[in-house]
C-alpha cells in the first residue's frame, strides 16, 4: 500500500502526462504491423489478459502463486466458447483489460485499437469452439412503443426507465447513454457481470431491436419546454424554486421593515 502511494506520488511529481495513463497500461508487441492478426492477438492476450484468464484462456478459478504480467494476478473466468459477442462487448467498451481484478468492470476509455480488438477476438475464438458471433441488430426496424414496454419489463428494474443506470446491491448499474446498438445487443445476450442473460426465448431478436431503438431514443428525449435545469429531476428543481422564493421573501421583509422605520 505504502509503495503504491509512493509510486503514485512519484508518478504525479515526475511526469504529469503519465497520470493520464491507466495504472496498468496496455502491453504491446514491438512491431504490430508486421504481425498476422492471430499472432498479434496471441501476443496481446499473453501480455494483457492471461494473468487472470490463464495462458490458454481456460480461466483461473483458484488464487495463483506469483505474479502475472503487469503485476496483476487475479481470478478470471474461462473464455473458451464465450464467442466474439462477449469479447467484443468487454473490449470495445473498455471494460477489459481490467486494471484491478477484483473491481467491477466498468466502461472507460478504450486503449485498444479496433485492429487489436479484432486480433484478440480472432485469437481467443481460435482456441476452442468459436461461440456466438457479434450480433447485428437493426434498431430502425423496431418500435419505440414496444421498446419502452419491453425495457420496463426486463431492464428498468436496474437500469431505470430512461436508462440512466443505478445500483444493485454489490454493484453499480451502468447508464446506457454511451452504449452502441451492437453493445446493447451483446450485453442482453451475454449478461456481463451481474446482469441476467436474456436468451432469444425471453427477448426475441425483433423485440431486442425495439428495446435498442427505445434506449437510443432516451438520449434525446422530446423537450416539453420549461426550465430543464439539466433535467436532473423534481427535487433539485424544487430546491431552485425555493431559493428563488426565499430571495423574494427576504426582499419583501426588507421592504416592510423599511416602511415600518419610516
Amino acid at each position: 500500500m505504502r509503495r503504491a502511494i509512493l509510486t503514485g506520488v512519484l508518478a504525479l511529481v515526475a511526469a504529469a502526462p503519465a497520470a493520464a495513463q491507466p495504472r496498468a497500461g496496455i502491453v504491446r508487441p514491438a512491431d504490430e504491423r508486421g504481425l498476422s492478426l492471430l499472432e498479434l492477438g496471441r501476443q496481446l492476450f499473453a501480455g494483457n489478459c492471461s494473468s487472470c484468464h490463464g495462458g490458454l484462456a481456460r480461466g483461473i478459478a483458484r488464487a495463483p502463486k506469483g505474479q502475472g504480467s503487469g503485476g496483476i494476478t487475479g481470478l478470471g473466468p474461462s473464455l473458451r466458447g464465450v464467442g466474439a459477442r462477449a469479447l467484443d462487448f468487454y473490449l470495445s467498451t473498455g471494460r477489459m483489460p481490467l486494471s484491478e481484478p477484483d473491481a467491477e468492470p466498468e466502461r472507460q476509455g478504450v486503449e485498444l485499437s479496433r485492429r487489436e480488438i479484432n486480433a484478440i477476438i480472432a485469437y481467443v475464438t481460435s482456441l476452442g469452439p468459436p461461440g456466438p458471433p457479434v450480433p447485428d441488430p437493426h434498431p430502425e426496424a423496431g418500435a419505440i412503443n414496444d421498446g419502452l414496454h419491453l425495457f420496463t419489463e426486463h431492464c428498468a428494474g436496474c437500469h431505470q426507465v430512461v436508462g440512466q443506470g443505478g445500483v444493485v446491491t454489490g454493484a453499480r448499474v451502468p447508464p446506457l447513454q454511451y452504449a452502441t446498438a451492437t453493445q446493447i445487443a451483446e450485453a442482453v445476450r451475454a449478461g456481463p457481470y451481474l446482469m441476467p442473460i436474456f436468451s432469444d426465448k425471453q427477448i426475441s431478436d425483433a423485440q431486442l431491436d425495439s428495446i435498442i431503438r427505445y434506449v437510443l431514443s432516451t438520449r434525446n428525449p422530446p423537450d416539453r419546454g420549461g426550465w430543464g435545469i439539466g433535467n436532473v429531476g423534481p427535487i433539485p428543481e424544487g430546491m431552485v424554486t425555493w431559493l428563488l422564493a426565499c430571495v423574494l421573501l427576504v426582499g419583501l421583509c426588507v421592504l416592510i421593515g423599511k416602511r415600518l422605520k419610516a
Partner: peptide
C-alpha cells in the same frame, strides 16, 4: 424486479 447473477462465481 432485479436478479443479480454472478458471471464468474469465484470473484
Amino acid at each position: 424486479s432485479m436478479y443479480r447473477k454472478p458471471l464468474f462465481a469465484p470473484a
